[in-house]
Amino acid sequence: MRFGDVDDLRGLSIRLQLSNTFYEASSQWWFSLDSVSVVYNSSQEAVFNASEVYAPSSLSYHCSHVSSLERHSALLRPGSDNARRWTLTFTDFQIQAFNVTSGRFSPVSDCTTFLTPAILMGLVTSLILLLVLAYALHLLVHLNRIENDRERKAHGDFLQNPEQMERCCSENIADKNVP
């Protein structure tokens, strides 16, 4: 890619170095973006290494941000001292290295990080629901135990102290002696 007079930038070019590798584990070819070079005025070059930009060769690669900034997952890492002075961000980035037909992109292999905000919120919500379920089960078991204790007490008279036992026994003897 070359850019002409864009806000007085002359001679700005961006070079993408791609490679194509066959992986026996997946039995298919995968392309990867190895590096991005930004050349300004044919003299200053900033090289960024791309570590996680890859897709099967039969698909295109799409990502909302391919950037050297940490807030966008930093898929591009400075590979030269000159690159540390630059920040590079591609928005709505889509690339297909090989097997391009009819001038259109193939189906997309999206870049997804493990902890996107949606996945993180789903995990937090699942954890909250799990805690509520565990608390509800605890209450249910506790209520069953209380109910069983009440039934046991209702079926039998438990004498608490010796005086109650004597009174109970004397009442029973008096009832038996009455003609």
Rank of each mutant, 00 (worst) to 15 (best):
C111D: 10
S57T: 02
C111R: 13
G122I: 04
L88N: 02
R10F: 14
S170T: 07
I128W: 04
L9T: 11
Y54T: 00
H142W: 11
W86I: 08
S32H: 13
L143H: 08
G4M: 05
S27F: 03
H155V: 10
I173Q: 08
L123N: 11
P107T: 08
L115V: 03
G103A: 04
S58D: 10
L129I: 12
S19P: 03
D157N: 14
G4W: 09
G103R: 10
H62V: 10
T113A: 12
S73Q: 00
M1K: 09
R77I: 12
P179F: 10
V38G: 06
S35L: 07
L12R: 04
N82P: 06
S60M: 02
D92G: 15
R167L: 09
I119D: 08
S67K: 06
L131S: 08
R71W: 08
V124S: 06
H72D: 04
F48R: 01
V38H: 02
R152I: 03
S57L: 00
C169Y: 08
P56R: 11
D149R: 10
A25T: 15
L16H: 08
D8W: 02
S58T: 08
A134K: 01
M1E: 08
D7K: 11
S43L: 09
R77D: 03
T87G: 00
L143E: 12
N148W: 02
R145G: 10
T101H: 14
S68T: 00
S43M: 06
K153L: 12
F22R: 07
M121V: 07
L139R: 07
N144D: 11
H65V: 07
V108R: 03
Y40S: 13
